[in-house]
Design a protein around this nucleic acid. Structure first.
Length: 305
DNA sequence: AACTATGCCAACCGCAATTAA
DNA sequence: GTTAATTGCGGTTGGCATAGT
């Protein structure tokens, strides 16, 4: 029996709660109950009411991620890719906020998509040195992956990019930038201030989208060059993946490498300016408009800001 | 054919934030 | 104002499917 001295009370009786995949019967029970009665504002009490041997949190997750109406799974469009990337670069792994911009998508879905596919799509697939057939082509799905030459920088991780994502229309990006900016401000964007004068003045490579996404293996060198800034910790996939997650979103050097995709060049916004508005969102003169399918302003009631 | 590696994704866990008492 | 309960979120794990050897 739980008492105060034991710390936080468990949300449910773990011993009498089922875990693992949901059966169709459980789904049906939960779905029909919520459709008829709603959640009643209390997820913890819900499973007892329905007669489900599930934790309330588990019921909530199942409903939000799979059972509620209009949920989409898979088949992310390029437009969605761009929105996800733009927001990830701006606000990091705030999946719930990102999901709010993509109707029908859940935070879990987007998180999985980012971790398993989008990250690789953007940064190129990495393999440890010493893969078997370095100069041959490999098939992945319907796509031919062009392997980099075997003599590329021995000891340094190599990458081969996927086909280019078209640069977004400039006007649309302006809108997007300002919306994101407002969102950042509302959600504590000023916390992203680097306060690091060194970063502000570091000479960094500025890549075009064609350099990031060009299919030709001969043009992947700028990408490798970018990565080589941290080559001491780039020896294997695991450490590199972590590196991306921990650093790239607010590290000016790495943001610089993403400009092509974000299209900063096409709207004349340098990374330093980009960082400036992230640090001081109130200084922008851009007009508040919408992003993607649903504007940040609508979503977060920022119109009056 | 068997084994291993990798990709993918549903679900869980723990913590922080929020709400209610 | 304080404490407990609940919700929401992001990170992580486990297991299945598929590809590669």
């Amino acid at each position: 029996m739980w008492n105060k001295a034991m710390g936080r009370a468990p949300c449910c009786d773990k011993a009498n709660v089922k875990k693992g995949p949901w059966s169709p019967e459980e789904d049906a029970k939960l779905k029909s109950y919520i459709e008829q009665n709603g959640t009643g504002g209390n997820w913890i009490a819900l499973p007892q009411k329905i007669g489900l041997k599930r934790c309330g949190k588990s019921c909530r997750l199942r409903w939000l991620n799979y059972l509620r109406p209009n949920i989409k799974h898979g088949g992310f469009s390029e437009e969605e890719d761009r929105i996800i990337l733009s927001l990830y670069v701006s606000i990091g792994s705030r999946w719930s906020i990102i999901a709010a911009q993509l109707p029908g998508r859940t935070d879990n879905d987007i998180k999985n998509y980012w971790n398993t596919r989008l990250k690789k799509k953007l940064f190129g697939k990495q393999r440890k040195m010493g893969y078997q057939k370095q100069d041959s082509n490999k098939k992945e799905g319907n796509q031919t992956l062009v392997m980099p030459p075997s003599d590329v920088r021995v000891g340094v991780s190599t990458y081969w990019p996927e086909p280019p994502i078209p640069v977004q229309h400039a006007a649309n990006q302006n809108e997007q930038m300002d919306s994101i900016k407002r969102l950042l401000f509302k959600y504590g964007g000023t916390n992203y201030k680097t306060n690091n004068p060194v970063l502000d003045h570091l000479p960094v490579p500025c890549m075009q989208s064609s350099q990031i996404f060009d299919e030709s293996p001969s043009l992947i060198s700028p990408q490798i060059e970018l990565m080589s800034l941290n080559e001491g910790v780039m020896h294997d996939l695991d450490s590199y993946s972590k590196e991306i997650d921990e650093n790239f979103c607010f590290n000016q050097i790495k943001l610089e490498g993403l400009e092509g995709l974000l299209g900063n060049n096409s709207i004349g916004l340098e990374t330093s300016e980009y960082m400036r508005w992230a640090c001081d969102p109130m200084s922008s003169t851009m007009n508040p408009t919408s992003i993607g399918v649903q504007s940040f302003d609508e979503q977060f009631n920022l119109s009056g800001m």
